[in-house]
Design a protein around this nucleic acid. Structure first.
Lengths: 182, 182
DNA sequence: TTCTGTGAATAGGTTCACAGCT
DNA sequence: AGCTGTGAACCTATTCACAGAA
């Protein structure tokens, strides 16, 4: 039976073995002392904890580069994230084919969401439109938002928002470069 | 004179006023009591601290969707990140024009880096090639790496690495959705 | 009076280290 | 012997709260 120890996992994840054990112990005792964790068992349990046996319906607002990258990234669909719809405000883009998806008018997002029950909304629109899109998503019942716009988004507390800001990531590198000792 | 208070900044950044003041106080006393922070002064000082008055030379390994998104994102160049070169291993892509950039053969990255003094290397190649690309970057003197490949990268301690893993971000949303109380 | 800057108190997270199961 | 699970120790980050400058 294939097993991994917390030391192995720490190496893969770039952390420490104590950290791995503590983190896993929050959810239960998955390992065997003297042996480690069964890969198959641990994988299954983590999928359960992370909610990955469920297929989540994702809608993307903004049919630009970011949305495009997500749609074409294979690991994405493989992990249970199904991109159900894409929207844009630009008439040039609306109606264009995106793989199997047809880009829809962003004004349809609200009514579609109520009907198609999207679980996750992706905001990939310019910063000045981000809050409005978020409001529409929240109003139509979406309770998890992935935000790629470089602004802070206000939502009711029951809505989960994660913001990814590429420029901020690079600025962190810039900071490290500027402040490293030579 | 335009000023902002720590309360204003906390609202913009999604944090608390005490947090803002503590963070800023690490680098000095930029504000005026009873008034707040001068926007112009604070901006200038933060640019200095973050190293943003310097223009950083960025090279991208992997001329796919991610690199493309970075090249075309306007806020990127505006913040002092100049994309100096892009590389790929695919003969189909090598030589193709990417705005003003011509995609180069990734085997030239090592020798180019020594000559063109790249500050930041972006890894946007498949997971199985990421470590090799990182090794080449490190060997040629690049000391800051932005990693978009879904793997942990090993580097010497003086090299700064930031990893952005889109799938992981979505899995965090999945976790939140799966574990929210109904 | 407003709002910063900062010690003190508190909370949160990580590491240590070891008992105990396999 | 090997490796987990976990209390205790430790360390770091956030929040509180207030003196003092504008």
């Amino acid at each position: 039976m294939a097993t991994v120890s917390s030391v192995d996992l720490a190496g893969l994840g770039g952390t420490t073995s104590a950290q791995v054990r503590k983190d896993l112990s929050i959810f239960g005792s998955f390992g065997k002392r003297g042996l480690g964790y069964s890969v198959a068992d641990l994988t299954a349990r983590l999928r359960g904890i992370l909610g990955l046996e469920h297929i989540w319906r994702v809608c993307i607002a903004g049919a630009g580069r970011i949305g495009s990258a997500l749609v074409r990234y294979p690991g994405f669909a493989a992990r249970g994230f199904h991109i159900a719809a894409a929207y844009d405000a630009d008439p040039e883009r609306i109606g264009s084919q995106w793989g199997e998806l047809r880009v829809r008018d962003i004004r349809e997002l609200g009514s579609d969401a109520a009907r198609e029950r999207f679980d996750i909304g992706v905001i990939a629109v310019p910063a000045d439109a981000a809050q409005h899109v978020a409001d529409v998503m929240v109003a139509s019942g979406i309770s998890a938002i992935m935000n790629f716009a470089p602004v802070q988004i206000a939502t009711p507390p029951q809505v989960v928002v994660r913001t990814v800001n590429m420029v901020l990531e690079f600025e962190a590198l810039s900071f490290a470069l500027a402040n490293r000792e030579k």
